[in-house]
Amino acid sequence: MTFLTLSLALVFVLIPIVLSKAFNLELEKDTVIATVRSIIQLLIVGYILQFVFHSENIIYTILMIALMIGAATQNARKKGASIKGITWKLIVTFIFVEIITQGILLGFHITPAEPQYIIPISGMMIGNSMVLSILFLNRFTAEIDAHQNEIELILSLGGTPKQAIHSQLIASIKASTIPTIESQKTIGLVQLPGMMSGQIIAGADPVQAVQFQLLILFLLLTSVVVTSVLLGFLSYPTLFNKQMQLLKVEA
């Protein structure tokens, strides 16, 4: 595809703007902003990736991943503002997910150790892990807020903080991971996953595209479960003080 044909695609941006004007939806401004931002951001990423892929130095790959983790942390931390030290807990979680997924991929030579593989897959893992962290933190703080009485009941009978929060922790881990697991059951039936579609459009063999997509799906399963379990077990102790009292949590 050339830049000329791509600019023809801007017609698709005009349609919502015209509709918005006609029906007074007031979406024009946001549509324009979204369009401009996506053009600029993706072009920058494209050029950066081109540079990183061509440079021999691993340091750029690591830098890219660090950047992704930084952005993901920045995005997710607002949801866990009431959990002390949430920033580094998120960083640890993302790094762990990255190490475990890339460790297996590279360790077993499933994918070649080249930036072209490492960076997009890392992006998907960290991105997914970020979404999951937000889901998990939302759920966890809401559960604690709603079940404060039960938590304090267990404490009052001589339970440890871990015992007191166990049900809420498990419920939040389950609730945040179930959508991912469920959606994998119907995948391919209704909607072709984005990455696979992209590969097929770009001319890849559909079976090979499927193989890659399956790999990503399996990796996602690991990343969602690892993310919520790790984040959960890192977070719960900071909800209590040394005297084993439940601190206030704002959902």
């Binding site: 009485n149 039960e150 009052s156």
Partner: peptide, 22 residues
């Protein structure tokens, strides 16, 4: 605060107003 919180809570039993159940 000289007591271990767990032992204290076992020895100073509390039946909550709300009769909370698990």
């Amino acid at each position: 605060d000289q007591y271990n919180p767990i032992e204290l809570r076992q020895n100073v039993g509390l039946a909550l107003q709300s009769a909370t159940m698990i």
